[in-house]
Structure formats: C-alpha cells, structure tokens
Design a protein around this nucleic acid. Structure first.
Ligand SMILES: [Mn+2]
Ligand SMILES: [Mn+2]
Ligand SMILES: [Mn+2]
Ligand SMILES: [Mn+2]
Lengths: 216, 216
DNA sequence: CATTAAAGTTAGGTATACCTAATAAAAAAT
DNA sequence: ATTTTTTATTAGGTATACCTAACTTTAATG
C-alpha cells in the first residue's frame, strides 16, 4: 500500500485512454503519449506492475481492476476540471486539456465533490467524453467515427477524441462540437476527404480528422 | 535560469509569510512551518541561494527581489484559489488552506487570469489577506492585533493570521471574521483573556488567539 | 531463410528532494 | 566563564522518476 504519486496517476490515465483505441497498450505508444523515453516507461511499468496496478500481457500493458479504478478516478477529476474551466472560468474547449492534466493531481475528493455539485453533476467533459461517477461507473454508448458514415448519412456528434489545441480550435471553428448534427454529403474515394454539412455550411474534412469525431 | 519547481514555490511562500511576523526567517521556523527536518531545509536554502532567490543574513534567511517577486506570484495564486474555493465552489473558510496550497502550483498564468476575472478581481482572500496584483503590488494597511486593543476600544477585523482549520472554524463560530466590528469589553491582567463583544454576543478570548486577529 | 527494422529491456547515470546521525556554532542559563 | 541548550550544518543515504547508450528480442521484408 505505497503512496500514489501524480506520475502514477498520469501513467494510468494515459494507459486507460490509449487502451480505448487499442487494447493492450504498447510501451512505445505509451512513451509517445507521455512524451517520455521508452526506457523510462519500461521501468515505470515495472513499478506499476509491482504495485498491482498494471500487468504485462503478450502484446502490451493492461490495467488491473485496481489500476482501472484509479485511472477512472483520475479521469473523473480531469473531466470535472475541464468542465470547471469551460463552464465557470470561461476557457475555450481547446485551452483546457493541459491545465486539467495538472489540476487533476491537485484535487482532493472534497474538491471533486464541490466541483461536481457546483456544475450540477455534469455527465460529460467539454469534448463529450463521459465523466465516471464516484463509483467509477462510466456511461458507454455505441458510437462510430464520422469517417465511417456513408454519403447522405447523418449523425449527432457525441465526442471528439483529440487533445491537440490547434485541432480542437479548428473543429470548433467549423462548429464540429458535441450535440451538433452533421450530414455527410459525399465521401471521396481512395481514402479521400468527406464533404460534410454542419448548420447549413459545407466543409471538406480529411479522413484522419473525421475518424476522431465520434457520432451516434 | 533553471526550472522552478513546486517545492521552490512552497519554500518561498513560507519564507514570505514567516518574514511578515519576524524578519529574517530562521531555518528552524521554516522547517517547522514546512513540516520538514532542519537539514532538509538547510540544504534547500542553499539551493535557493544558488538560484538567487534567497540570501542568508546573520539572523536568517531573506528573500531577494526575485524571490520576493516569485513568492508574491505564488501567494496570488494561493489566495485566488482560496476565493475560488469559497466563493464559487462553496467551501468554508477553514477548509481551503491545504487545498489552495496544492492548487497554487498547478495553476497557469491563464487560469490565474480567468479566476481573477470570474471573481471580479477580489482584493483579499477569505481570511482577509490582500491578493497581490499581477505586478506584485500588495495593499498594506496599518493594523494591530486585537490583543493590543485596550478595554472599551473597538476595531474592525481585517484579517486572521491563522491557517489551522480547527481554529478557523472556532473563530467563524464566534463570528470573528473579516469586516466584522469587535469591541473589547475587558482585558484581564497578567496576560489573561479578553472579553470581546461581537454582534451583540460576548466571548472570552485567549491572548494567543486574539493576537492572530488583526484589526483596524 | 536471412537480413533489416522496430520494439522492449538492461545498465549505468543524473537531478530533486527528502531523511537520520553526527558535528559545529551560537545563545542562554548557571 | 562554564556548562547546557538550542540552532544550523555536514555527511552519508534513500526514493522517485527521468535520461542515453547498448543490447536483446520480435516482427517485417526481400
Ligand atoms: Mn493527466
Ligand atoms: Mn475532455
Ligand atoms: Mn503552499
Ligand atoms: Mn487565506
């Protein structure tokens, strides 16, 4: 039962996020996401294994139940922080990720409760991702990336799997934010762009970008 | 121009606060306030000296101009955090110190600005201490401890120099909070208690406690 | 199948910030 | 003026979390 540091939290958070895209998380992806060298991550993963927070399968790192639970606590604090920053402090959605990534380690359970209460127990972060509740329960919906819609199909944006401020700013400038209805007008062949219609306007969106936007 | 860590900030903050009570700050007082061993503090002070943030005089540690400036930035973030916690998130004044002491290191200049703006540029923290402005300017008033008032003298509480939650809770329960008018009814001799009148009620207050309450 | 490339780990090292035990210096008390 | 006490520092050590360079293992490719 060793003390848990903010670095531990940061690793677990990253592993949790990455495993949503691809299940066992490779050391190299983790290192890239955390902007650390591979050996640093390799070493830390060993320590996390020792603490019973992760285990290493054939193809990569997996969270244990305890690790998953801690990760969700961190993610709850992260997403509540983001909401605090946008809804109360007037930040834009593209400015909150890094800020929240620091705040999440400085927030006590009491502050977490106060934020949740003040915000009226929000269900999602500004990017549309669900906020785990106190028991770690996470609402999961069946979503598909916008890039998989066919021509003339419509969808409502649920979330945006992206943390790069520039990309987020760009998406917001097109009105591609949660709860907005998008219609795919055309899909260019050979992995080409999508022509989408948002609030009456038409835009060409690269596949890569469109794959980050999850719709229902 | 080395990177500045949260520990550096914490030391400078403590030194700044302690020097207000007694100018050059002794290693032992600093160690006690930071809840660290004397050798740890001794060592860290040497490092801070190397960074040009403090210097050691005959009787103790003093902040350089750069150290003072950094300390005031930390204190600004601390006090703005406290205000955020009480005014927006609904904390009581006795619950915010430790929380703010962690938040202050996780807040960017942008967040600092957003908090200040959202709160309407508050001039003081919930305990009545002035919030340094962006340029480090600090409003200073001539105050005296409540314990120095004579019988039948009145004062308005400006601030409470105390961070212990229990004490703060006690003071709030008596209504001894900033902007409240207190009248000293009697002063018991030989360092005995003061009988004070607050909002029509009468209380006996120890000298020690009364010395923490600054009035004008 | 052999070679090359990618991914992961070991080895050895650094910086930061803490600790206890021992020692030195300064202040207070006798 | 000694002795005692307090205060400060040095010495030696630990934990955490990072690094580069070198090596090993695994996967991909000709
Ligand atoms: Mn984070
Ligand atoms: Mn988010
Ligand atoms: Mn602090
Ligand atoms: Mn305060």
């Amino acid at each position: 039962m060793e003390a848990d540091t903010s670095r531990t939290e940061e690793y677990l958070e990253s592993i949790y996020k990455l495993q949503q895209e691809q299940h066992p998380v490779s050391t190299s992806r983790l290192a890239e996401h955390l902007k650390l060298s591979a050996p640093s991550v390799s070493e830390m993963v060993k320590k996390l294994t020792g603490k019973g927070l992760v285990f290493q399968s054939e193809r990569g790192v997996c969270l244990t139940d305890e690790g998953k639970s801690l990760a969700k606590k961190v993610i709850r604090r992260h997403r509540l922080s983001e909401r605090l920053l946008t809804d109360i402090l007037g930040f834009n959605w593209d400015e909150v990720h890094d800020e929240a990534c620091r705040l999440e380690h400085a927030i006590s359970p009491e502050m977490e409760d106060h934020i949740a209460k003040s915000l009226g127990n929000p269900r999602t972060c500004p990017h549309g991702h669900p906020i785990p509740d106190k028991d770690g329960k996470l609402a999961k919906e069946k979503l598909k990336p916008l890039s998989e819609l066919k021509a003339r199909e419509k969808g409502i944006i649920v979330n945006v799997f992206e943390e790069d401020p520039k990309m987020l700013k760009y998406l917001a400038s097109l009105g591609l934010i949660p709860d907005v209805c998008v219609k795919v007008e055309e899909v260019a062949p050979f992995g080409g762009p999508l022509i989408v219609c948002v609030a009456g306007a038409r835009y060409a969106l690269g596949r890569e970008v469109a794959s980050k936007i999850k719709v229902k």
